[in-house]
């Protein structure tokens, strides 16, 4: 099937990524390929290694070995900043918000607008920009100056999504972004994915809501015990086929190279 040599159309290619946590082999030579403007659904059992693979791509976890090619250049990320500078943004499964800091502060954490030659925070602009971003994304959070610890689970998730989208990423990674969202909010996120991908942003979506995948994804990648088991075309794959790829432990098939 797909081979993991980078071609010109690829936004990112991950090859033979390995990561061990003590006795746990979280990633055992995982591969992944995402084209520019492509939406890839990443699925798999619990503990298959989806989040870990994505953290490697976001620079949060440093892999033991493996290669990452981004926009045709081989890269390696020592810190999350390296990945962020290339335009890789991630919404983490645990959201990674600072509960004691307000909504605007969380949106701009690490990239605060500054004044006075960079010495001081531009707090006023932070709140104005936050308001504008939230409104543009149709996120209903009335106040930007209350700590996110006081928000509902869905609102917190919305803040995490807004943070990832705000800075115009090239690659957007969403790790279960809709787990805590109400129906209307899930629709908003799916619309958002369609919108940004039509603008050329590549998206990787991890979710256990399989029906959502078929609505927005171009390809579906199935992970199994730290490797990529199958790489499927979302338009031609049936839900039954996908489910069997995820749960069937005894039929090694697909893109394992």
């Amino acid at each position: 099937m797909t081979d993991y040599e980078a071609t010109g159309a690829d936004r990112v290619v991950m090859r033979d990524i390995r990561k061990r946590y003590g006795m746990v082999d979280a990633l055992r030579g995982a591969n992944l390929r995402v084209g520019a403007g492509e939406v890839v659904g990443l699925v798999g059992d619990n503990a298959a290694g989806k989040s870990t693979l994505m953290k490697v791509l976001a620079g949060t976890v440093v892999p033991d070995s493996g290669q990452i090619v981004f926009d045709g250049r081989q890269v390696s990320f020592a810190t999350p900043r390296d990945a962020r500078e290339l335009g890789i943004e991630m919404v983490y499964q645990d959201l990674a918000l600072c509960d004691d800091i307000d909504v605007a502060g969380n949106l701009f954490l690490g990239r605060e607008p500054r004044r006075a030659g960079g010495l001081l925070l531009d707090i006023k602009r932070m709140h104005e920009d936050a308001r504008r971003q939230l409104d543009a994304l149709n996120i209903r959070i009335p106040l930007t100056d209350i700590p996110v610890g006081g928000l509902s689970g869905g609102q917190r998730q919305a803040v995490a999504i807004a943070r990832a989208v705000t800075f115009g990423p090239k690659l957007l990674i969403l790790d279960e972004p809709t787990a805590a969202l109400a129906v209307a909010e899930v629709e908003t996120v799916l619309e958002l994915i369609k919108t940004v991908s039509s603008q050329g942003v590549s998206v990787i979506l991890i979710t256990h809501r399989l029906q959502d995948l078929f609505r927005v994804c171009d390809r579906l990648c199935v992970m199994y015990e730290g490797t990529l088991r199958a790489d499927l075309d979302a338009r031609t794959t049936s839900l039954e086929r996908l489910v069997s790829e995820i749960v069937a432990h005894d039929q090694p098939e697909g893109a394992r190279s």
Partner: peptide, 22 residues
Amino acid sequence: RTPFGRYVVGLGSNGESLRRTG
């Protein structure tokens, strides 16, 4: 009023989250 002060609070609030923002 400064980014440093913000990061000090962020570090105590959720250090891993702050690290992930770079």
